[in-house]
Design a protein around this nucleic acid. Sequence first.
DNA 1: CCGTATCCATTCCGATACTG
DNA 2: CAGTATCGGAATGGATACGG
Lengths: 140, 140
Amino acid sequence: MCTWYLQVTSTKPGVMTETTQLTAAHRELIDQVFDKWSLQVLEALCEKPSRFNELRHAIPTVTQKSLTATLRRLERNGMIERVIISSRPIAVEYRITSLGGTLEDLIDALLHWSTAHMPAVQRARARFDDETPPPHDASS
Amino acid sequence: MCTWYLQVTSTKPGVMTETTQLTAAHRELIDQVFDKWSLQVLEALCEKPSRFNELRHAIPTVTQKSLTATLRRLERNGMIERVIISSRPIAVEYRITSLGGTLEDLIDALLHWSTAHMPAVQRARARFDDETPPPHDASS
DNA sequence: CCGTATCCATTCCGATACTG
DNA sequence: CAGTATCGGAATGGATACGG
């Protein structure tokens, strides 16, 4: 059983009365780093540094706007860095940072989990949808 | 370096021409299981089976509506199960399933990652916000 | 007690147009 | 090439009221 109260060793005595609980800030970080687009951007940048339009091509369903927002957010959180290659015309490369690199194993585990258990999930969905049919009563 | 093209051994020859790439379905599953509320619900249910109002109390910021939606989604994906204890007045208990239990290590890793690297993230944010101050030009 | 239904505010997101 | 600005529709989420 997991407890979800993480033991964090503090060098300052008296600062933490008990074990450190997860705060809203931790949740926020997880949300920002593991959301839909961020995950795909990080995957791509783990493979190789990429230009803006390379990323757009690698993630066909993302829009300019969302990609820009995602890149800024990841940059702000220190996961990626924005490197200006040349400026006429401007060329920008995005790279994963060493901090962002600590995510690699985690993302890898996430992706493997999803593929490993997808069949079971689909069975569960089929059963659920079968037991709970969509409500419509016009001709029942 | 990670490749993000997962090797899935198939018993049916010819079905997969190459390695299996992540599909939109995989992303959707990850989004549904690792989103904001789902994560907290799964944490709580990993600790112990809980009633509806217990969960509301354990996650103070969630509303009825969002909690219900999250529980239904997790149930549909086979991560949790809904057990009716008694029916006058109705009492319901939510429990993690064995499929949902496969998430425990993953969630644990996620939470540990967030606490381990939070200081570095905060430094990165401070630097970013410092270099990119909020734009206002009325009195510049 | 455990929800569903409804209304409403806010936020998100895609499409489009425009700039250095 | 790599964005920013703006707009409108869609989805989300909270508050409230009601039901089995």
